[in-house]
Computed example of a mutant assay.
Amino acid sequence: MPFYIIAILVAAADQLSKMWIRVHLDVGETMMLGSVELSRFENSGMAGSLLQGYGRLFGVIAVLFVLGVLYYRKRSEEKGVLFDCALGFLAGGAIGNGIDRLLFGQVTDFIVRSGGILNVADHAIEAGVVLIILSLIVQALRNRKALRQ
């Protein structure tokens, strides 16, 4: 159940935040929200603005990625709340950016940080990767402990 809740919440938060940005900032405009710098950027490529102009293709790839996550989740021997949460963040992030790519041919990015300008979906995908790594570490430690007994 955490998988679906997280995926839906991430996709909704991503889309709502992008809508807010589109209403309040023009492309290239910047504002501060507390200590966070927001700057609207439209990215028709992939991460790091690579391969500009292929937004809709990346939208199709996002759909295939989500289908892959659903398949992997069902077939994987890896189980547990942490793993389920990780996949929820990955799927929710892919859905959020996939919606933009399929509807607009580009993704709205706006959260400025040292590595570039990202959005809520991008941060969710990063969180999902970190949680997958943590889940694998926890599973490896459990297996190691079971072998000792």
Rank of each mutant, 00 (worst) to 15 (best):
A12L: 12
D14I: 00
Q15R: 09
L16P: 02
S17H: 12
K18Y: 14
M19V: 08
W20F: 12
R22N: 06
V23T: 15
H24R: 13
H24M: 12
L25A: 00
D26W: 11
D26S: 11
D26N: 14
D26Y: 10
V27H: 03
G28Y: 03
E29Q: 08
E29A: 02
T30G: 12
M31F: 10
M31C: 08
M31Q: 13
M32Q: 15
M32L: 07
M32P: 06
L33M: 14
G34F: 15
S35H: 14
S35C: 10
L38E: 13
S39V: 08
S39E: 15
S39G: 13
S39N: 14
R40S: 03
R40Y: 10
F41T: 05
F41K: 04
E42N: 03
S44P: 14
S44F: 01
G45A: 07
M46R: 01
A47Y: 02
G48N: 03
G48V: 01
S49M: 07
S49Q: 10
S49K: 09
S49P: 09
S49Y: 12
S49E: 10
L50Y: 12
L50G: 09
L50R: 13
Q52N: 03
Q52F: 05
G53V: 00
G53R: 00
Y54T: 01
Y54S: 04
R56D: 02
F58H: 02
F58M: 02
G59R: 01
G59Q: 05
V60H: 04
A62K: 00
A62H: 06
A62Y: 09
V63Q: 01
V63K: 05
V63W: 04
L64P: 06
F65W: 07
F65D: 04
V66D: 02
V66I: 04
V69K: 07
V69T: 08
L70S: 03
L70Y: 05
Y71R: 14
Y71V: 06
R73K: 09
R73N: 07
K74G: 02
S76A: 08
E77D: 12
E78A: 15
E78M: 14
K79E: 10
G80K: 01
G80E: 05
V81N: 11
V81P: 08
V81Q: 04
L82R: 04
F83S: 15
F83I: 09
D84Q: 15
